[in-house]
């Protein structure tokens, strides 16, 4: 698999070409949050309906590259209908996958081994269970392209900001 194919997995291109949950929910009642990537000018709007602790609906709009758009689409599909604490867990797991060095991930099908030959440091608190991420694991190739990590995390950070906002409003 070439580096490019590792980045642009088929599932990513699919979500880029046919994004799920694209659009905007009426706000209010939906929460509406905007996110910006100052590096490349990408903008995203995430709208979410929170009902009795459940993220009952989500839509996103805005402009961005295939990584930011497919990440938003994959995210929307993954969090829709989930209880908010589970969504927060998923955000945490996804962001860990995006922030750690590739060598701390378990060796994948392309056999990524720790370059220093060790089997990984088991005392690391955030060894990621990539399998638990399902389709989202397709985005792990982004870690090899540091500049693109912000593209992948834009929608997730924006959603996290929305959930915090929701907490404040209900507090």
């Amino acid at each position: 698999m070439s580096a490019l194919e590792g980045l642009y997995r088929e599932i990513i291109l699919d979500h880029y070409r046919s994004p799920r949950n694209r659009g905007e929910l009426a706000s209010p009642p939906a929460l509406r949050v905007e996110g910006f990537n100052p590096l490349c000018g990408d903008e995203i709007v995430v709208t979410v309906d929170l009902q009795r602790g459940i993220l009952s609906d989500i839509k996103f709009s805005g402009t961005g590259c295939s990584i930011s758009q497919s990440s938003a689409s994959l995210m929307s599909a993954a969090v829709k209908g989930k209880p908010v604490p589970e969504v927060r867990d998923l955000i945490r797991t996804f962001k860990s996958m995006m922030s750690i060095h590739e060598s701390t991930l378990p060796a994948g099908p392309d056999g990524v081994d720790n370059p220093d030959g060790s089997s990984g440091d088991n005392t690391e608190p955030d060894v990621i269970d990539v399998d638990a991420l399902g389709e989202l694991a397709a985005l792990q190739g982004v870690v090899k392209f540091p500049v693109r990590i912000k593209c992948a995390t834009l929608s997730w950070n924006t959603l996290a900001q929305g959930l915090d906002q929701g907490d404040q409003e209900t507090a």
Binding site: L7, C40, C65, I67, F145
Partner: peptide, 18 residues
Amino acid sequence: HPHDISQVLDEYGICVRA
């Protein structure tokens, strides 16, 4: 998207700004 263009061009050793 320009970012995607630039990423593919990089694969061919071509440096452009996006």
